[in-house]
Design a protein around this nucleic acid. Structure first.
Lengths: 197, 197
DNA sequence: ACTAAGTTACTGACCAGTAAGTTATCAATA
DNA sequence: TATTGATAACTTACTGGTCAGTAACTTAGT
């Protein structure tokens, strides 16, 4: 209900009703509304961790990254992320430590995986020699913002493709081109020469 | 004051005081609180249009885009954008047409410029042959999300560089690598071969 | 008979919106 | 130049509804 209305607009009595208890019961478990809200977001973040089963796929960095971003996108497009992200953005000023918690427990963990894939790609010469950490962050930013737009397609129609899978392709291609080293043309289907190797 | 507290938490009496009038006066000009809010956001969007003087710079697409994104970044990092964007994201569900207005009047106008620069780059063979519209949108997403993180550096410290100018470089390099055609290595200072040409 | 768990009915603060009253402006007139 | 009257601009003080939080009461479990 917080997700639907936000912290201020969600009425404690409605929350209680939906939980099948009376309002007073809530105060047996939480000191006040804010604490309930905070606890709820923490639960969401934790369920988010469990949901996001981002695993190393086998194969070259290119393939690994594609798999990684496919999984990331499915997470970002889930209703739970959409809700959590919106709440986080709206209430971040009142609950700054929630955002810190989220970044530490979810985003960083996720980014570390991307970073390591990119690092290996750099070592193999498949990706250009740039800071893998920066690359991972840039790609993450791109995905998150596109998820925000996609979650509000009605208003942001001009900013997203109408199909999620097309959008995923667009993002993945963009990111991979940004990371790829100019000499590694092998994964380009229409590459005619062997490049510098 | 809406920017500081949000629609619900901002008290009409305080707004009136800050405006140097009494609460009743507001109701001579606006039917209710929501209308005042909406009008204020519209004003912000309009002032945003005036502020964002994104112009074609001279030179090759690479240089033009660098100049474009420098200007975009300075807009995104301005306090007025930060406020407007946060309000938009928080109240989008209550005021969907505000977001539509914003996308139409600001974002699309801005994107069109980026698209045309990229299109010319594609025609010149400097950028790879991909949909310029998609490229512009991807880059925009990347910039917007980084602006959001940068606006909350305390919480999102791990997601941004501590310096705005470094961040701008990181984003610009990422985007340009994503757009560049593999055969156009000329702008790469350490390029050793002439590529396929 | 004691405690844990829950409910109900209330209070007090808050605040958007309003109705009645006040002041400033200015044109017309003497 | 002063007076009046009309109206526009604004203020004040109040109302009504909402809702977080609580205190007294009830029920279930052992």
């Amino acid at each position: 209900m917080f997700g639907e209305a936000g912290l201020a607009a969600a009425r404690l009595e409605d929350i209680a009703k939906r939980a099948g208890v009376s309002k007073g019961t809530i105060y047996l478990y939480f000191p006040n509304k804010e604490a309930l809200f905070e606890e709820m977001v923490r639960e969401m973040v934790i369920s988010q961790i469990e949901r996001a089963e981002l695993r190393f796929a086998a194969g070259d960095p290119d393939t690994q990254l594609r798999e990684y971003y496919r999984a990331l996108w499915s997470t970002l497009r889930s209703p739970i992320f959409e809700t959590m992200h919106r709440l986080m953005m709206c209430e971040i000023r009142s609950f700054p430590h929630l955002a810190e918690f989220y970044v530490r427990e979810v985003v960083q963990r996720t980014l570390r995986l991307a970073t390591s894939i990119i690092r290996r790609g750099v070592e193999l010469g498949e990706f250009r020699d740039a800071d893998p950490d920066v690359g991972a962050r840039m790609a993450h930013a791109l995905f998150v913002q596109n998820a925000v737009w996609a979650a509000n397609r009605t208003q942001f129609a001009q900013l997203t493709d109408s199909r999620d899978d097309v959008l995923l392709d667009q993002m993945t291609e963009f990111v991979l081109h940004a990371l790829r080293s100019p000499s590694a043309l092998s994964s380009e289907p229409d590459a005619t020469g062997a490049g510098l190797l």
